[in-house]
Design a protein around this nucleic acid. Structure first.
Lengths: 196, 196
DNA sequence: GCTAAAAAATGAACTAGCTTAAGAAATAAA
DNA sequence: TTTATTTCTTAAGCTAGTTCATTTTTTAGC
């Protein structure tokens, strides 16, 4: 499937559109091929785009005072990613967004998004729906972080996203789950001798 | 200011509307007075409403396996609160939402929200904006949780929301910041003898 | 103002998860 | 195929934050 067909299909799952409307929507995006580790958003630069993942995987992360990477979000096929604080307010980014593996994305510029929304309320509805779903999904992640132990977080993550577990580097998973790589390695190798 | 005037004012900050449109919007809401500790959403029941806080403060929280409360979100004047996973998908809630102090809220039912959005694209835009802002704000919270120590999280929280610090119970702040009450007590009383 | 209940403080013992360091394994590059 | 780079593992010592038990303070109801 061509990148543009893919996003049109995604759009059609959320709102009802005519063929013509779908075409207008698709034209607002630009396909981009990314090599592993390639950055598309960097701190201090304003995020000009949001990205829809056609193939591959991306992540956003921040480097803290200690120089550690903390993965804020992961995105695979059919997911969206950007630095939302930067993109929606058009202010300098604090996050990096990079390709985890060789990937194909569709980029949507801030201006094109504004034009789409102004042109057709259906597109406004579409962006409202994906924002709300993002909100709900972030709420779930927050709950997991606050209520579960490192071991439980990993178990649930592995159950929820089996495709990640084997395909993306472990240090990225560890930084997404908020634990050290070494500790995740221990968990994975069942070397935990807990009492309970 | 009357509750309805307050939300109309809030609406006008986000989108341009005529007096008539504003009135239609205001009529979709219902004012409700809540007593301290009163619950408006409970697990297993589907969240029928989202709430706009006119006066006072609310929080959402989840009780984990150990029986501990974990505060997921706080809301004061001009903020919105609900269990988003329940409300937007209209499925059973996992969170409690309660009034922290005596409060006045405006409740908006799921059906009324759908009607508003169907009736006028400007309202669709409005809900898209608040969802996006919620997303950006949750991203900031996630970053804080992943990158900062308990002490830093409290310091930043106190700087960001000074109104909370003195007005809401400490155990709620602790559970929001993801630490034990005892530890927060220690931080507050400068009893931390850290080296660095 | 008195009493009961809820919230906060305190301190000691404990532990989940981190840090550091060094080596092994896997992947990529040349 | 060799070398270089990145990723993963293992283990020991450490610390940020928890748990538990008790006391003190604050809040709320009557």
């Amino acid at each position: 499937m061509l990148p543009t067909e893919k996003i049109i299909h995604f759009l059609q799952q959320k709102v009802e559109v005519t063929t013509e409307e779908a075409a207008v929507f698709g034209e607002a995006f630009q396909a981009k091929i990314l090599r592993k580790k390639q950055l598309v958003i960097q701190p201090t630069f304003t995020a000009k785009y949001r990205y829809y993942v056609v193939k591959g995987a991306l992540r956003s992360f921040i480097i803290d005072q200690k120089g550690e990477e903390n993965t804020i979000a992961l995105a695979i096929e059919d997911w969206w990613i950007t630095d939302y604080n930067s993109y929606i307010y058009q202010q300098p980014a604090t996050l990096f967004v990079e390709a985890i593996s060789n990937s194909t994305v569709l980029q949507l510029s801030y201006e094109n998004e504004q034009k789409l929304k102004a042109a057709n309320p259906k597109f406004e509805t579409f962006f409202r729906i994906i924002a709300e779903r993002g909100l709900a999904s972030q709420q779930r992640r927050l709950i997991a972080n606050l209520t579960q132990s490192a071991e439980e977080r990993y178990e649930n993550f592995a159950k929820l996203y089996p495709q990640f577990v084997n395909e993306i580097p472990q240090y990225i998973i560890a930084s997404y789950l908020g634990m050290s790589t070494e500790f995740l390695s221990k968990i994975r190798n069942h070397k935990l001798n807990r009492k309970s």
